[in-house]
């Protein structure tokens, strides 16, 4: 086999694939954050905890109720989304008239509560979750595990479907209108508060879905969310929250860049996204796809 800059192609493509999977999670999480921020003006710090709850939901459904991965893929996000909507109705709703920072602080507190509860119950070390799609395909230049291919494909489908619904359907046009002028949309007879609740539920459900997909790929652990959410915040700052497509492209792109860094300069792999964020802030403070507001 040929070698590229002294790196065997198996390692290169293997890391690229891992990068794509990470990118899939970045894309789904930053997409959810962007949708929620658009309508609620809240940066949902609980997003990481809700991703973790999605993964734990899958683990619990399997171990306590015997429901396999494919059932959990549907059930777990719905349950987590319902919990999210209850939180929105009872706590978040009361902060909309205040400065945005209070929403951030409240959701940060909720994230601490959730992470603490799961850590107390299940410990800090991870729990294993069996791969529902064992085996793989040999593509000649690399070995492609079936489940990893499925994660990337599923995430792409979900992201593009979200983009289609928001940018190309009537429901999406209501949503975009309410993002711009909620008062006017309300005056046209659309129930904006209910729309806000459902939007929050949708964004949270997206995070939980990413969590279920992550369960077999990584381990299920209470700290999986808080580690990821900070990286996703950097992704959001890089991409800007102005566009849906921007969130998707930035998420996948940064995942791939991170994967490549692991091959060529492993020491920097945990910081490369933050470095890119600093560079983007110097050149284009509003973010790659953002508009200065």
């Amino acid at each position: 086999m040929f070698e590229l800059l002294g790196i065997p192609p198996q390692a290169l493509f293997g890391q690229l694939l891992l990068g794509l999977i990470n990118g899939a999670f970045y894309a789904m999480l930053s997409l959810g954050l962007a949708v929620i921020f658009g309508l609620l003006n809240v940066i949902n710090f609980t997003h990481g905890a809700q991703y973790m709850m999605g993964a734990f939901g899958a683990w619990m459904l399997l171990n306590y109720a015997g429901i396999p991965f494919w059932g959990a893929l549907v059930l777990s996000p719905i349950v987590v989304a319902i919990i999210g909507m209850v939180i929105e109705r009872t706590l978040l709703k009361r902060l909309y008239h205040l400065d945005h920072l209070y929403g951030l602080l409240l959701t940060f507190g909720l994230a601490l509560i959730l992470e603490g509860l799961f850590r107390r119950q299940y410990g800090s070390s991870g729990l294993p979750y069996n791969n529902p799609l064992p085996g793989g395909t040999n593509l000649g230049f690399m070995f492609l595990p079936n489940y990893r291919a499925f994660v990337v494909a599923a995430s792409l489908v979900v992201c593009l479907a979200t983009w289609f619904v928001i940018e190309r359907t009537k429901l999406g046009s209501y949503l975009r209108a309410a993002t711009e002028r909620p008062d006017l949309v309300q005056a046209f007879g659309i129930d904006v508060p209910r729309m806000i609740t459902l939007t929050y539920g949708f964004g949270v459900g997206l995070a939980a879905l990413a969590g279920v997909l992550a369960a077999p790929a990584y381990q299920v652990s209470p700290t999986m969310g808080s580690n990821l959410i900070i990286v996703v915040f950097a992704v959001v700052v890089i991409g800007g929250m102005g566009s849906i497509m921007g969130a998707i492209v930035t998420g996948f792109g940064l995942g791939v860049i991170e994967g490549l860094t692991k091959v060529f300069y492993p020491e920097a792999s945990s910081t490369v996204i933050f470095v890119i964020m600093a560079l983007v802030l110097m050149v284009k403070p509003a973010g790659l796809f953002g508009t200065a507001k």
Binding site: L95, L98, L106, G109, L110, A111, L112, G116, R120
Partner: peptide, 21 residues
Amino acid sequence: LGEWVLVIQGVIFVLAVSLFR
């Protein structure tokens, strides 16, 4: 109390933001 400290801090956060800002 171990992990409960994290939970209690979170509860104080939520209470402070909701009730006595």
